[in-house]
Computed example of a mutant assay.
Amino acid sequence: MRLKLQIALLISCTLVSLSGLYAAYLFNDASLGGRGGAIGVAMSFAYLFFSSLNTYKGIEKFDAAEEEIASALQLQMSIEQKLQNILDRFTLLKKDIENEARRQRSANIFLAISTVISTLFGGFGDLVAHQLIAK
């Protein structure tokens, strides 16, 4: 799901950036060439902000492990059982953290690409638009 959203962000930022050039050509005003890029950058930052609202909840897994330790002590489980349960929890937590790190790397790549494209259009779109209008 995240990958589809990241691809959609990249395509949207590129299209919005190009729309600034189209607006400049349509209205014969080169200064509009960078507007789409500015909107694309804003879209990228909005994605960054809203995707960080769903931060990793690994702390909850530590809480669950802590509760299991407490309940194991109350149930008088054998030390081997206690240690195995704790090890299992931490193994799952490690896998979750590794998966989240991979997803975050992917998000960072798409975010960087979409931001660079939009920033270039925002900064230089008027120059490209000027060339388009001149033709």
Rank of each mutant, 00 (worst) to 15 (best):
R89Y: 00
F121Q: 07
R102E: 13
L75C: 06
S114W: 04
Q81L: 10
K57T: 11
N99G: 12
F62T: 04
A65C: 07
T115C: 09
E98G: 03
L93N: 04
S71D: 08
G58Q: 01
F110V: 01
E100F: 02
K57L: 02
T119G: 08
V116Q: 11
Q104S: 15
I86W: 09
S106R: 04
A64D: 04
Q74Y: 10
K61M: 08
S118Q: 01
D88T: 10
D96G: 06
L120G: 07
K94C: 05
L93K: 02
L75A: 12
F49P: 06
A70E: 14
R102W: 15
L93F: 01
Q76D: 07
I69D: 10
E100T: 10
Y56S: 13
F49D: 00
N85P: 15
L87W: 02
I86V: 15
T91G: 02
T119K: 10
V116N: 06
A65M: 12
I109Y: 01
S114P: 12
V116M: 14
E60A: 14
V128P: 01
G125K: 10
T119D: 03
A65Q: 07
L92K: 07
Q76G: 00
L87G: 03
F90C: 05
F121V: 06
E60M: 07
Y56T: 10
L53M: 13
E98P: 01
T119P: 00
F124S: 07
V128H: 01
G125I: 05
D63P: 03
Q76W: 14
K61G: 03
E68K: 15
E100G: 09
S114I: 10
Q76K: 14
I86Q: 15
A65P: 08
E60C: 03
I79N: 14
L73G: 15
L73V: 13
Q104V: 11
I97L: 07
I97C: 01
Y56R: 11
G58P: 00
Q104D: 14
Q81V: 11
F62A: 05
F49G: 00
L53E: 06
A64M: 02
N85D: 13
S71R: 12
F49C: 01
N85Q: 15
R102P: 00
T55I: 05
V128I: 15
I109Q: 01
S71M: 03
L127K: 00
G125F: 09
K95H: 09
F121K: 06
G122P: 02
K95A: 10
L83Q: 13
A107G: 12
